[in-house]
Every structure is written in C-alpha cells, then in structure tokens.
Amino acid sequence: MTARQSIKAKPRLAVTVGDPAGIGPEITLKALCGGILEDVAELLIVGTASNLQQQAKRLGIDKEIGLDAAASVLKTGARITDVPISSSSGFECDYGKVSAQCGEASFRYLQRAAELAKSGEVDGLVTGPINKESWRAADVPYVGHTEALADIFKARTETLFITDKLRIFFLTRHLSLRDAIEQISVEKTTSMFLHAKSVLHKFGLDNPRIAVAALNPHAGDGGLFGQEEINILLPAVERARNEGVAAFGPLPADSVFHQGAQGEFDAVIALYHDQGHIAAKMMNFLGTVSVTTGLPVIRTSVDHGTAFDIAGKNLADSTSMVSAIKLAAQLCRAR
C-alpha cells in the first residue's frame, strides 16, 4: 500500500474543540470514547492541552482515553495539538459565559488547524462549535468559521448541510431575515445552482436534481403572496436549466425539504439560514453535519452551537461530532 493509499484508507483530520466555555471540548473528548473512531481517521485534537486534561478529568474519562498531564498521544491513537493560551497552565474558562479569552482560544484553534491543512499535515478539518459573541469580544474580524476559512484559504465558500438523504445548500447565511431577502437575486440563485451541481458532481452524481425553495407561502400562489418567485426564482431556474442544470422550483418550503429527504431531489437550495436549519434539525438534530464547500480541503462541523446552558454539566451528546468526523473521513477518501 502506498502512502497516499494509506491516507485515503485512514485520512488525517484536525479536530478543533471550539469554545472552551461551551460543550465543544466535552463532545470532542466523548467522541474518543469506546473506540468508535479508531478505524475511521487519524485524529489531531486541536485545543489547549491543560484545559482538555481538566475537562477529561471532570468528565471522568481521562483514564479511559489516556489523557493526563504527560499525554500527547491518547490510547485511541488520537494526538493532542496544543495551542497555549496566555499562561496555558493557568487557563481557566467560566462555563456558559461569553469570554474574550475563550473567543481568542477558539479562533486560534481554527488558525492552527488551517495551518496544518495548508502544510499538508492533515487531509481535512472538523470544527467544534464557537460562540460568535465571544469572537466579537476577542475582536476576531469574522462572523464565524465559514467566513474565516474563506479568507484564510482565499476561496469562495458555501454551506451545505447533510442529514441522512437530505442535502441543503444555503443561498444566504448569517444575515437578518430582512437583509437575506434583499440579497436574493436571479444572478445569485443561478450561481448557487451551478455551484451545487459542481459540488454534487464531485460526490459522484452526474446529473443531480436540484430544487430551490420558495420564499413566500405556497410559492407565492401566482403572485398573490409576493412577487419574488415570479421575478427572481423562476428566471433563475430557467437560466440554470439553460446552463445544463436539472433545476426545479421554486417549490413551497413546507414541502420541498420533505421531497429532498425522500430522494426526489439530490439537493435543495434554502434561501436563508433558518429555512434550511429548521428543516434539517427537525429531521435529525444530532445527525446533521455542516460541510463548507469551495475550500481546497474538506471541512465539516457539528450543526449545533456551544449550548452554554448545559456547558460543564456532563450532559452534552457527542453524536453530531462523531457524525462530522465520519463524514469528513468519507469525503476525504472520495476525493
């Protein structure tokens, strides 16, 4: 077996633990338990080692995974990539609270993981949840992961949610609903159809069927409830078809995601953040994985936030992190 074949069989993934004040470190450490990921990928856990040691001990899993003060390689084979924050031995986090220190920490974890990807030391990234208010408190100049990675890699990035058979692309992301509606245009929607086709082609789908969700109730009912379907979305569908995309819609948002989940469409374009998030998370909250498309490396993420309300209470479920790691490994092998 060649070195490259070995990498494809067991990709190397950098896993950032996210905001230390949230559930990111907890779900990352819990994901290492039970050996369920040992044959999936080689994992480099990117975080502050002293904090991870404290959290593993608090969770009562430090001995199970082999994480103590001297450990850099765990019993599972995962490695700790230490990113010291201030005085690392004294690094503390106040669970469930916005913190500039934790915002800085989670951003530096992402930067380190991106460096590993750029240097070819890892094949993909898996990111734990960050708190956007903590990033702002730390003067991080990005709204979130996707925007930061787009700048770091100088790439056009888009967001794709995958949950079971349902794939959702997002026309807009972190905008108010009013601003998101203003961003919808024929050109932007047509471009998303083409982007979605290109991404799905890399997934092995030669002629994917892609639908766009409507903005208004009942897809506008012929203009009774708004003109966006007539003036923007229908022309975009026609343009996409003229450029070789099997494009459909606009279809009522209360139906099209169900149709996608049933396999009638290979992907659905959501027009704004909550339109797609609600559909995916109602279907499978813990099993939904976010994929950043357009990067030169694979990047997946859990689909939930820092869950400050349960941080530090040993209540977090690691299913989404396990799913994100498994999907990242699968996508790396398929490249």
Rank of each mutant, 00 (worst) to 15 (best):
G223R: 09
L224N: 10
L224W: 09
L224C: 12
L224Y: 14
Q227L: 06
E228A: 02
E229C: 07
E229Y: 08
I230C: 05
L233F: 10
P235Q: 07
P235N: 09
A236P: 02
A236I: 00
V237N: 05
E238V: 14
E238M: 12
E238K: 15
R239F: 04
A240D: 04
A240V: 01
A240R: 03
A240L: 02
R241V: 04
R241C: 05
E243T: 09
G244T: 11
G244I: 14
V245A: 09
F248L: 04
G249E: 14
G249Q: 11
L251R: 03
L251V: 10
A253V: 10
D254C: 11
D254Y: 12
S255A: 15
F257Y: 11
Q259N: 02
Q259G: 02
Q259W: 13
G260H: 07
A261V: 01
G263E: 04
G263Q: 02
G263H: 08
E264D: 14
D266E: 13
A267V: 00
V268Q: 09
A270S: 10
A270G: 03
L271V: 05
Y272A: 00
Y272T: 09
H273N: 11
H273M: 10
D274H: 06
Q275C: 08
G276E: 11
H277T: 15
I278K: 10
I278V: 15
I278N: 14
A279F: 02
A279C: 12
K281H: 07
K281Q: 00
M282C: 15
M283E: 03
M283C: 02
F285K: 01
L286S: 03
L286Y: 07
G287K: 14
T288M: 08
V289W: 03
S290Y: 06
S290A: 10
S290W: 00
T292D: 07
T292I: 05
T293M: 13
T293H: 12
L295T: 04
L295N: 05
L295Q: 03
L295S: 03
P296E: 13
V297H: 00
I298M: 02
I298F: 03
I298D: 00
I298K: 02
T300D: 08
T300N: 09
T300P: 02
S301H: 05
V302S: 06
D303R: 05
D303N: 11
D303G: 08
D303A: 08
H304F: 12
H304Q: 07
H304I: 02
G305I: 14
T306R: 03
T306Y: 04
T306Q: 01
F308S: 13
I310S: 07
A311I: 13
G312A: 04
K313E: 15
L315I: 08
L315A: 12
L315C: 12
D317K: 01
T319L: 03
S320R: 01
M321Y: 07
V322F: 01
A324N: 01
A324V: 11
A324W: 04
A324H: 03
A324E: 05
I325A: 09
K326Y: 01
